[in-house]
Design a protein around this nucleic acid. Structure first.
Lengths: 198, 198
DNA sequence: CGTCGCATTGATATCGCTCAAATCCGGTGG
DNA sequence: CCACCGGATTTGAGCGATATCAATGCGACG
């Protein structure tokens, strides 16, 4: 049922957290509003979104069960993007004040929190690396390599291929075409809702 | 709150830091080697680089005077990229162990360090947002908007335009052409080694 | 069933990449 | 002081990969 690797909600934060639910399509916070809360996603899917000049969505981050989000905002006065529940979502919400207090009061928690931010930073840098690749097939290959937990080379795709296309910074048509081509030429293999790099 | 515009080396770290210099072209650390140190760049320019399959450089991060680098690596066993001094560079080097000890011993420093990581995270997310834009002119506009300190709309370009092109994820030829076109159509204005968005 | 969104494939246009060449500019050595 | 050199800058021509527009099938869900 739950991912065994699901990162736990830090016990030290539990007394300060309140549980909330949002139905699909609900806005959790908006860009420009004051950063009063940090969130942990218990279940569902939340996207952090900015809008381009033409109104198109830019997905800065997609949080899934076990992820914190808005965690980098605590020392910024205002949120810099919208948070939108894609599916019905359950979150644990902690006030930024409680969090900073806990950081100063509990050195072990501070260390954990720094570790968490470091992981996020490395993950986003990996995405920068991916978006720096020019061809669609290279981005797909990079996604399969960096998403693969070591050995097998099998990567399960969460959500739709359309979402994956957006994450890779290409259109869904190009993703379909390139995947089909890579499969034809024997570079990858489809398996259920995932892929294997050969 | 404590968001100093001028990045300073935290006084609490000074007793643990050693000063080193690297000449242009020198490798400071390599991907895969153990993460023993965290660096602060006093002067010069350092790039964090990974290499694509064709051997092309992917610049994950470009550190300038006042930036920390490898700061996200302290809870990872190995560096995940190369660090290369582009110009002669002077750094302050702190061992990962001293840093974690200080984090646990000094709550005020822990808070500052978390603030620093948050800034880095927001900066990298901004770069992701930029790389998600499809057209060169949109990326340039985004760069000028997000790089501009508030009011004036004037952004000074550090380094060469070639470097900027790499940062924007386009070739330098395209950058030159697009800049010229945007200037012709009155969208931007060149001023010395910078640009103004109109 | 009808509808809606994802998946897939086709046709075409376009933007940016590649290769190429000319100029500029700062530094270096004679 | 000047000739030279390397790298940045700039512009040109052509091509190819990807975006865009379009149409169809398919499965889920009410």
């Amino acid at each position: 049922m739950n991912n065994p690797k699901l990162p736990a909600f830090p016990p030290a934060l539990r007394p300060h957290a309140s549980r909330l639910t949002y139905s699909a399509g609900k806005m959790i916070f908006r860009a420009g509003s004051a950063t009063r809360w940090v969130y942990y996603l218990v279940s569902g899917c939340v996207r952090l979104i900015r809008r381009g000049r033409a109104g198109e969505e830019i997905v800065l981050h997609q949080a899934r069960a076990g992820d914190f989000f808005a965690e980098a905002s605590i020392d910024s006065a205002r949120y810099h993007c919208d948070a939108l529940a894609m599916e019905a979502a359950t979150v644990l919400r902690v006030s930024a004040l409680d969090l900073t207090n806990l950081i100063e009061a509990d050195p072990e928690f501070a260390r954990q929190w720094i570790s968490l931010l470091g992981q996020q930073l490395r993950a986003v840098r990996t995405r920068v690396e991916r978006l720096s690749l020019k061809s669609a097939s290279e981005r797909i290959r990079h996604f399969l390599l960096s998403g693969a937990p070591g050995a097998a080379g099998y990567v399960k795709v969460n959500g739709t291929l359309k979402d994956l296309a957006r994450d890779l910074g290409i259109t869904h048509e190009t993703l379909y075409r390139t995947l089909a081509g890579m499969e034809r030429s024997g570079q990858i293999e489809r398996q259920g809702d995932g892929f294997r790099l050969l």
